[in-house]
Design a binder for these strands. Structure first.
Lengths: 343, 343
DNA sequence: GACGTCGCTGAAAAGGTTTGCAGGCGTACT
DNA sequence: AGTACGCCTGCAAACCTTTTCAGCGACGTC
């Protein structure tokens, strides 16, 4: 009937089909394909040809059922819309080689019920481990219930110190930003940032304050300008800062979007950036930071690396029970044209 | 030893454990849990209590091995960085209820080799179907090899008309934009867009030209200004347009980023937006469109809906063989402050 | 030429769930 | 009270792969 020899109709080929076609037992076929045991070279070739011909792919379900390892990992995120999850997700994917481990992606949308559903489904699918990505850096409640597989929390740490958490050093990020501005000779530095309810905003502000204090300085207005994370707050706050403190010569912004707003207002007010006022953003969101005029210096949180580390830690924890740990990773500064030494 | 009764140590509970605890056979336990067969109410309760106590979750591997259905779907994307995949991905997740179907996410990064690896891994995991998301709207080569499960192509259609493809109506999007500008009384309309190598750019331009022709008009310069998709091209092109055709009273931009650049240049040149020149973008990328000054009217491609439809089509194709189809979905206009009736 | 050893192959079990089929017991009706 | 029917329960097979163990054949050596 069909051209191919013994190609099963509507069914994917099984090891039995391959063995039959190669004229060996399924045990020999398995060994030939996996390189296990001693199989004569000619036999192996025959089996591999048969497998190729039938486009045989070993059934990972059966394999997992037997070995107890599925080679799958669940990734639980809270905000796919947000731009934090994606780089982390890519880092995780990189950590496991392509095709070695497959990632189940679930978006809980910040809903605890939905999260529970997803966890249940993932455990039922016998994932080897879980990665939980938060949408903000505030500690989050650990997964409820007895989770029989390792869990790694990324970006948002678990509130339980017995868990494994990987986070960004936001305090250090704030310091980085200020130190760069100081190295540019700036002394009158303001800080415009997002909602004070966010740990990230407070941490960055604390880092900034600490770096300034180390240089014997205080930030303009003696406190950060907390507001929201978007451009309009950047525009509004920049107006306030310039009006109240015209001596300002640098503004550290809590997000690139805020920085965009700040840039726009400074431009409106006729203040030269970076000459008279340098501006630095946070997140290094390429679409926003790399296309402004002038292009924005920004703190990059290395989220992709964060995800890769999470993948590695999870991998280690799967292989052998690992001690709880809480790691914080520094960001790095990406210098563009919005900051420049005074002169 | 432990407080819980017979809770297995480092092993997840199996149906045998539940049955033993409830004092029934595994068959009865299975039927009680799945509501199959006739089981006495009291027995069922006893089994369910035992399952709850052991936090039993049926092994989806074993179930899938037997039934041939895994309740998993592979989602193959080419650009996670890009902002097209994510809304589509969310739509797909929505289409399958939470916990019903789990999604394997794979990013091929535009690499055919990597894509082949991922497909192989997914088929080996016995996914019930595949969704392929493109990064641009140009038709893409269909997946190579014999794929024994249904495949749905989203955003980028398959080059093979025998496949199932779900795409955006870019021509219609271009028309929408122009019709809105015409309804605002604009007559001297320019079109600044991305690379001519992109089908999306050409389609939107064609739609724009058609809508203008229907009104007896031609676009300013008699052709679109093709360039790149970013702000700097928007700035540069806007300079050219205004210089060469000062009579321009509206600009239709191929992306929100281009529109941002256009807005900035118009502002620099002292042209009032939306009064003297209206501007409309494309993509309705919230972070970009909703925070500019003025906020940007834009064409939204309804990507989330696109993903949801893809999920539904895949679901239907899994349940029963479906005829090939190629569907195109219209976008919608989101009106903000950058467009306004003349006068 | 015979025996031993090594190299190769195959039979069988395990992993957890679902389901068809058969059997057992209880109840109701005659 | 007996029989029949129906409700409920349990045994066993099947899904597909991996791995252990045993067996067979061939070759080499004595």
């Amino acid at each position: 009937m069909t051209t191919g020899p013994e190609v099963p109709a509507n069914r994917t080929a099984t090891l039995t089909d391959v063995a039959k076609l190669a004229g060996v037992s399924i045990a020999t076929a398995s060994k030939a394909i996996n390189g296990r045991g001693e199989v004569r070279a000619t036999t192996r070739v025959r089996v591999l040809e048969a497998a190729e011909l039938l486009s045989f792919a070993p059934n990972a379900l059966a394999r997992g059922l037997l070995s107890g390892r599925t080679g799958t990992v669940g990734l639980l995120t809270s905000d796919l819309e947000g731009r934090f999850s994606i780089p982390i997700l890519m880092g995780v994917e990189d950590a496991f080689g392509a095709g070695q481990v497959s990632v189940f992606l679930c978006d809980a949308r910040g809903d605890a019920i939905r999260e529970k559903h997803h966890v249940r489904a993932l455990l039922s699918r016998r994932v080897d481990g879980l990665i939980v990505v938060g949408s903000r850096t505030d500690p989050r409640p650990p997964l409820a219930g007895n989770i029989p597989v390792p869990v790694v929390y990324v970006y948002a740490p678990s509130a339980n110190p017995d868990d494994i958490s990987i986070t960004v050093d936001n305090v250090g990020g704030g310091q980085l930003a200020i130190e760069h501005l100081l190295s540019c000779g700036r002394r009158n530095i303001a800080h415009i940032t997002g909602e004070a309810g966010f740990q990230a905003a407070r941490d960055r502000a604390d880092g900034a304050a600490a770096a300034l204090a180390a240089a014997g300085l205080r930030m303009i207005g003696h406190r950060p300008y907390f507001g929201s994370w978007d451009e309009s707050w950047g525009r509004a706050a920049a107006h306030m800062v310039v009006e109240q403190h015209p001596e300002v010569d640098a503004i550290f912004c809590g997000s690139d979007q805020i920085a965009r707003g700040v840039l726009e207002t400074l431009r409106d007010l006729g203040r030269d950036v970076p000459g008279s006022t340098s501006v630095i953003g946070f997140d290094n969101w390429d679409a926003v930071a790399a296309h402004s005029r002038p292009r924005l210096t920004s703190i990059d949180m290395n989220l992709k690396r964060l995800g890769a580390v999470a993948g590695q830690r999870l991998f280690a924890a799967i292989d052998s029970a690992t001690a709880p740990s809480s790691e914080e990773f520094p960001g790095r500064i990406v210098i563009r044209e919005s900051t420049v030494p005074i002169g």
